[in-house]
């Protein structure tokens, strides 16, 4: 675009503005059509929105416990009437997250060596890398549902589901870390007569260990969240208690359990955040 006079400039800008107007109108039109279509398929209407909002407000209103200043002790006691069971379930949830992170690490780390281009070549690299990517695309809840059918209700299904997702996710992340490792140290170990295992043990691991720790802690945070929701399909932990409370319309139980979950998530996030800073 160039011009030598005001008249030419006006011509150029006029056509440019017209083009911009058309594309902007087009984009807005496409957006509105898609939104209308989606709203229809998703069974949303302005009326449904209003009803939904008031239903949600009503639900939240019922969740608020009745705490009075004079009788805070007994009120809290009746709100958390089942505190023992819930705490037990909550500790199960934390343990599920812990166990599945450990299993995920133990399986994911060795796989990551195979899935790194600078350590493994040929079909093994390709197959393992793609497999890890494929497995991690499926949400852990889907695994949990299938595993509940195979292993029965309870924590075993949940641990294996979250561990499977963790292993693939950590394997993928670790392999990316491995690929950024310095190749000169590999050569040093190789020139000393070291084989593949020696290279991994003495050249790779010392370089990547801090990143491994950091990613594993991050995974643990995420697994805490996953471990709470897999209970909704019967795979153990606090989610199972929450599912029962929601389905039986025990509003105050719902708020009591949700509050416990939120506090746990916050504490774990903060702790892991601090631990991560120690290592990096």
């Amino acid at each position: 675009m160039s011009w030598s006079s005001l008249i030419e400039f006006e011509e150029v800008t006029r056509s440019k503005r017209a083009r911009e107007l058309i594309s902007a109108t087009g984009a807005v039109a496409v957006f509105i059509v898609l939104l209308a279509l989606s709203a229809r398929i998703g069974e949303v209407s302005p009326q449904a929105l209003l009803d939904g909002a008031s239903a949600a407000a009503d639900y939240i209103g019922r969740m608020v416990p009745s705490l009075h200043f004079n009788t805070v002790g007994p009120d809290l006691k009746s709100w958390y009437w089942s505190a023992g069971t819930w705490l037990n379930a909550l500790s199960d949830t934390i343990l599920i997250a812990f166990l599945s992170t450990v299993i995920g690490f133990v399986i994911g780390a060795p796989l990551s060596f195979v899935a790194s281009r600078n350590l493994t070549s040929g079909w093994a690299y390709f197959v393992v890398r793609r497999l890890l990517e494929l497995i991690r695309t499926v949400p852990s809840l889907v695994y949990a549902m299938a595993f509940v059918l195979a292993f029965g209700l309870g924590a075993t299904a949940g641990i294996l589901a979250v561990a499977l997702h963790s292993a693939s996710s950590l394997g993928k992340l670790f392999s990316e870390v491995n690929e950024t490792a310095d190749g000169k140290t590999f050569e040093a170990v190789q020139s000393a007569g070291g084989g593949w295992f020696s290279v991994v043990r003495f050249a790779l691991l010392p370089q990547v260990a801090p990143a491994y720790v950091s990613y594993t802690l991050l995974r643990f945070e995420k697994n805490i969240r996953s471990a709470t929701i897999i209970g909704l399909v019967g795979a153990g932990g606090i989610g199972q208690e929450l599912f029962v409370a929601i389905r039986s319309f025990q509003y105050q139980d719902v708020s009591a359990i949700v509050l416990m979950i939120i506090c746990t998530v916050m504490v774990v996030d903060m702790t892991c955040d601090r631990a991560r800073r120690l290592f990096t």
Binding site: S2, W3, L6, F9, E10, T13, K16
Partner: peptide
């Protein structure tokens, strides 16, 4: 445009 032209900047107007 005229102001930009005066400051020798009209070529960059867009």
């Amino acid at each position: 445009y005229r102001l930009l032209d005066e400051l020798d900047m009209s070529a960059r107007a867009l």
